[in-house]
Amino acid sequence: MGMLKRAKRSGWWIAGVKDPETIAEHSFRVALIGSVLAMMEGADPAKTALLGLWHDTQETRVGDIPHIGRRYLDAASNQKVTADQVSASHPAVRTGAQRIVEEYETGDSPEATCARDADKLECLLQAVEYREQGYTNVQPWIDSSVAHLRTASARALAEAALNMNSIEWQQTYLP
Protein backbone atom coordinates (compact mmCIF):
# COMPACT_ATOMS: atom_id res chain seq x y z
CA MET A 1 0.00 0.00 0.00
CA GLY A 2 3.05 2.22 0.12
CA MET A 3 2.49 2.93 -3.56
CA LEU A 4 -0.79 4.67 -2.68
CA LYS A 5 1.23 7.20 -0.67
CA ARG A 6 3.13 8.11 -3.84
CA ALA A 7 0.40 7.78 -6.48
CA LYS A 8 -1.48 10.98 -7.24
CA ARG A 9 -5.23 11.14 -7.86
CA SER A 10 -5.08 11.67 -11.59
CA GLY A 11 -8.58 13.04 -12.15
CA TRP A 12 -7.53 16.34 -10.60
CA TRP A 13 -4.99 16.87 -13.38
CA ILE A 14 -7.96 17.23 -15.74
CA ALA A 15 -9.09 20.18 -13.59
CA GLY A 16 -5.60 21.68 -13.84
CA VAL A 17 -4.45 20.86 -10.30
CA LYS A 18 -0.65 20.75 -10.54
CA ASP A 19 0.09 18.68 -7.44
CA PRO A 20 -3.04 16.73 -6.48
CA GLU A 21 -3.56 14.69 -3.35
CA THR A 22 -2.35 11.10 -3.23
CA ILE A 23 -4.66 8.10 -3.24
CA ALA A 24 -3.61 7.36 0.35
CA GLU A 25 -4.46 10.90 1.47
CA HIS A 26 -7.87 10.53 -0.14
CA SER A 27 -8.50 7.11 1.42
CA PHE A 28 -7.46 8.28 4.88
CA ARG A 29 -9.97 11.13 4.82
CA VAL A 30 -12.64 8.84 3.35
CA ALA A 31 -12.18 6.56 6.35
CA LEU A 32 -12.50 9.43 8.82
CA ILE A 33 -15.51 10.96 7.08
CA GLY A 34 -17.05 7.51 6.79
CA SER A 35 -16.73 6.92 10.51
CA VAL A 36 -18.41 10.27 11.19
CA LEU A 37 -21.23 9.52 8.75
CA ALA A 38 -21.70 6.08 10.29
CA MET A 39 -22.05 7.63 13.74
CA MET A 40 -24.61 10.09 12.36
CA GLU A 41 -26.51 7.34 10.52
CA GLY A 42 -26.42 4.69 13.27
CA ALA A 43 -24.07 2.37 11.39
CA ASP A 44 -20.83 0.79 12.64
CA PRO A 45 -18.11 3.48 12.39
CA ALA A 46 -15.18 1.03 12.60
CA LYS A 47 -16.52 -1.16 9.81
CA THR A 48 -17.30 1.91 7.69
CA ALA A 49 -13.77 3.26 8.19
CA LEU A 50 -12.33 -0.13 7.18
CA LEU A 51 -14.39 -0.12 3.99
CA GLY A 52 -13.15 3.39 3.26
CA LEU A 53 -9.52 2.42 3.77
CA TRP A 54 -9.79 -0.50 1.35
CA HIS A 55 -12.00 1.14 -1.30
CA ASP A 56 -9.19 2.26 -3.64
CA THR A 57 -6.49 -0.30 -2.84
CA GLN A 58 -6.93 -1.82 -6.30
CA GLU A 59 -5.22 1.26 -7.69
CA THR A 60 -1.88 -0.30 -6.70
CA ARG A 61 -2.48 -2.58 -9.72
CA VAL A 62 -4.52 -0.54 -12.20
CA GLY A 63 -3.69 3.05 -11.26
CA ASP A 64 -6.20 5.84 -10.74
CA ILE A 65 -8.19 5.84 -13.95
CA PRO A 66 -10.07 9.14 -14.27
CA HIS A 67 -13.81 8.89 -14.81
CA ILE A 68 -13.50 10.04 -18.42
CA GLY A 69 -10.84 7.39 -19.07
CA ARG A 70 -13.23 4.63 -18.02
CA ARG A 71 -15.19 5.29 -21.22
CA TYR A 72 -12.34 3.74 -23.18
CA LEU A 73 -11.14 0.92 -20.96
CA ASP A 74 -12.53 -2.40 -19.87
CA ALA A 75 -10.80 -2.69 -16.49
CA ALA A 76 -11.06 -5.73 -14.26
CA SER A 77 -13.55 -5.44 -11.43
CA ASN A 78 -12.25 -4.24 -8.08
CA GLN A 79 -13.16 -7.64 -6.64
CA LYS A 80 -10.99 -9.40 -9.24
CA VAL A 81 -8.07 -7.03 -8.67
CA THR A 82 -8.33 -7.51 -4.89
CA ALA A 83 -8.39 -11.29 -5.31
CA ASP A 84 -5.13 -11.05 -7.24
CA GLN A 85 -3.58 -8.61 -4.75
CA VAL A 86 -4.19 -10.88 -1.77
CA SER A 87 -3.79 -14.25 -3.48
CA ALA A 88 -0.57 -15.06 -1.61
CA SER A 89 -1.73 -13.62 1.72
CA HIS A 90 -2.65 -15.50 4.87
CA PRO A 91 -6.02 -17.20 4.27
CA ALA A 92 -7.77 -15.02 6.87
CA VAL A 93 -6.39 -11.87 5.23
CA ARG A 94 -7.34 -13.12 1.79
CA THR A 95 -10.91 -13.87 2.86
CA GLY A 96 -11.26 -10.70 4.92
CA ALA A 97 -9.96 -8.36 2.23
CA GLN A 98 -12.16 -9.89 -0.42
CA ARG A 99 -15.21 -9.64 1.86
CA ILE A 100 -14.47 -5.95 2.61
CA VAL A 101 -14.12 -5.03 -1.07
CA GLU A 102 -17.19 -7.06 -2.06
CA GLU A 103 -19.29 -5.29 0.56
CA TYR A 104 -18.07 -1.87 -0.55
CA GLU A 105 -18.66 -2.63 -4.23
CA THR A 106 -22.14 -4.11 -3.80
CA GLY A 107 -23.14 -1.34 -1.39
CA ASP A 108 -25.78 -3.43 0.32
CA SER A 109 -25.13 -2.52 3.97
CA PRO A 110 -25.53 0.72 5.92
CA GLU A 111 -21.75 0.78 6.36
CA ALA A 112 -21.12 0.45 2.62
CA THR A 113 -23.61 3.22 1.95
CA CYS A 114 -21.81 5.47 4.45
CA ALA A 115 -18.39 4.55 3.01
CA ARG A 116 -19.52 5.27 -0.55
CA ASP A 117 -21.03 8.59 0.58
CA ALA A 118 -17.76 9.36 2.37
CA ASP A 119 -15.88 8.80 -0.90
CA LYS A 120 -18.13 11.30 -2.68
CA LEU A 121 -18.07 13.76 0.20
CA GLU A 122 -14.27 13.64 0.39
CA CYS A 123 -14.10 14.41 -3.32
CA LEU A 124 -16.44 17.36 -2.80
CA LEU A 125 -14.34 18.66 0.10
CA GLN A 126 -11.15 18.30 -1.92
CA ALA A 127 -12.73 20.17 -4.82
CA VAL A 128 -13.81 22.99 -2.49
CA GLU A 129 -10.26 23.18 -1.12
CA TYR A 130 -8.77 23.25 -4.62
CA ARG A 131 -11.27 25.95 -5.62
CA GLU A 132 -10.08 28.03 -2.65
CA GLN A 133 -6.53 27.61 -3.99
CA GLY A 134 -7.58 29.14 -7.31
CA TYR A 135 -8.41 26.07 -9.39
CA THR A 136 -11.61 27.04 -11.18
CA ASN A 137 -12.39 23.85 -13.13
CA VAL A 138 -13.55 21.77 -10.15
CA GLN A 139 -17.30 22.44 -10.28
CA PRO A 140 -18.08 19.20 -12.18
CA TRP A 141 -16.54 17.21 -9.30
CA ILE A 142 -18.66 19.13 -6.80
CA ASP A 143 -21.85 18.65 -8.81
CA SER A 144 -21.22 14.95 -9.42
CA SER A 145 -20.39 14.33 -5.76
CA VAL A 146 -23.55 16.03 -4.50
CA ALA A 147 -25.68 14.16 -7.04
CA HIS A 148 -24.45 10.76 -5.81
CA LEU A 149 -24.89 11.24 -2.04
CA ARG A 150 -27.45 8.84 -0.59
CA THR A 151 -27.66 9.59 3.13
CA ALA A 152 -29.29 12.60 4.74
CA SER A 153 -26.18 13.08 6.88
CA ALA A 154 -23.86 13.25 3.87
CA ARG A 155 -26.17 15.70 2.10
CA ALA A 156 -26.24 17.92 5.22
CA LEU A 157 -22.44 17.86 5.51
CA ALA A 158 -22.10 18.63 1.79
CA GLU A 159 -24.39 21.62 2.13
CA ALA A 160 -22.36 22.86 5.10
CA ALA A 161 -19.10 22.40 3.18
CA LEU A 162 -20.48 24.38 0.26
CA ASN A 163 -21.54 27.25 2.52
CA MET A 164 -18.32 27.75 4.48
CA ASN A 165 -14.63 27.91 3.75
CA SER A 166 -12.29 25.05 4.57
CA ILE A 167 -11.03 26.68 7.78
CA GLU A 168 -14.59 27.03 9.06
CA TRP A 169 -15.23 23.43 8.03
CA GLN A 170 -12.18 22.16 9.94
CA GLN A 171 -13.17 24.13 13.02
CA THR A 172 -16.75 22.86 12.90
CA TYR A 173 -16.63 19.28 11.54
CA LEU A 174 -13.04 18.10 12.27
CA PRO A 175 -12.22 15.73 9.36
Rank of each mutant, 00 (worst) to 15 (best):
A43H: 01
R99K: 12
M40K: 12
L73W: 03
Q171N: 15
L53K: 04
I68Q: 08
G96R: 09
A158N: 04
L174C: 07
I65T: 12
L125H: 05
T172D: 04
L157C: 00
N163R: 09
V36F: 06
Q139P: 00
L37M: 13
E132F: 14
F28H: 13
W54S: 07
I100H: 02
Q58W: 11
Q133L: 11
S10A: 12
L51F: 06
Y72E: 03
D108P: 01
L174K: 12
E59V: 05
A43M: 02
H148V: 06
C123T: 13
K120V: 10
E168M: 13
K120H: 15
I100R: 01
A160F: 08
T113F: 02
A161M: 00
W54H: 07
Y72N: 07
A147M: 12
D64F: 03
P45K: 02
I65Q: 07
M1H: 06
N137D: 09
L149H: 00
E129M: 07
R6F: 13
N137S: 09
T57W: 05
Q98L: 15
A31K: 00
L53Q: 07
D56P: 01
G11M: 13
G63S: 09
H26M: 03
G52C: 08
P110Q: 10
G69C: 06
K47H: 14
G11Q: 09
R6Y: 13
I142S: 01
A38C: 08
P45V: 03
A31P: 03
L121A: 05
A43T: 00
N78F: 09
H55K: 14
Q133H: 14
T82H: 04
Q85F: 15
L73V: 05
G96M: 09
E41N: 10
E168Y: 02
R150V: 06
T172M: 13
H90S: 05
H55A: 11
